[in-house]
Design a protein around this nucleic acid. Sequence first.
DNA 1: AAAATAAAAGACATTCACATCTTTTATTAA
DNA 2: TTAATAAAAGATGTGAATGTCTTTTATTTT
Lengths: 145, 145
Amino acid sequence: MFSKTTEYAIRVVIYLSVNTTPSSLAGVNEIAGNLNFPAAFLGKVLQDMVKKGLIISVKGPGGGFYLNDNTLSLSILDIVELMEGLGFLNKCGLGINSCSPENPCPIHEEYKNVPESMRKALSIKSICDIREDLTDGNNELTIDF
Amino acid sequence: MFSKTTEYAIRVVIYLSVNTTPSSLAGVNEIAGNLNFPAAFLGKVLQDMVKKGLIISVKGPGGGFYLNDNTLSLSILDIVELMEGLGFLNKCGLGINSCSPENPCPIHEEYKNVPESMRKALSIKSICDIREDLTDGNNELTIDF
DNA sequence: AAAATAAAAGACATTCACATCTTTTATTAA
DNA sequence: TTAATAAAAGATGTGAATGTCTTTTATTTT
Ligand code: FES
Ligand code: FES
């Protein structure tokens, strides 16, 4: 659904929310190791995320990355929007570029609730909420973030 | 959401359902022209569709393609399944390869109804139904299929 | 200051979906 | 039976996303 860049960004945000503080950072190699991402490419994504204000970087020995405070209040959808935009919510179900009521494809009506449910699924929780889910441990989440 | 190949296949099926009969065919160039697809590439897709039994080809002068009878009873979802499989219904919303209850990601629960609504949107109508919608003209479909 | 560390930046490589071009084969019409 | 037509098949090209490698810059520790 999303580009690798966006996917990595989402999972990095969640990882950093759980595993770092402004005084306890995570380096590229640690993140790449734990999330099983290609380290060199992840470096690029992290730079991008710094530019976009999602995370903060510290150079030099002991350096690394941690989450920008503001990022905690964002939803996954907000992160997707920052990384690659929300065009995916306007895609026609049959691949015709612009889904619109004026030019409906044969399944336009039936398809309407797909982007709707996507938007909901991606925006109902904040990163903060997700961090709580993961740290509280009173759920069944098992994947390493 | 789908590959170009699958997208082209879907729209070709709809086009042929409306515009051809076993005695009135459509050639690659006609289809490509009307649907605004690259003709040479479409040729490859059409070959694939013939192999998969979706359409029937006739060589030589006056030749071209028409819809296999069986195809009329299929849904869009059936066509997607034939062309590229139904893996997209099992993709995790965060991009982790296998969405499963055993290994739920942080938005696993919220994401559940997304593939559900996709499946419904893509399977509720048969190609036959869609052809009726388009030929009856008692709807507002405006895109050329 | 010098050495070590780690991110930033730039250049380069790979891959795959997508697309094009050319040649071959089958069919029809004259 | 020759010429024309159109699909089938094979070879080749392209671009964007993804991934790697090397050099530079900033920071910290000694
Ligand atoms: S035009 Fe196809 S889903 Fe709206
Ligand atoms: S594991 Fe992510 S949606 Fe199911």
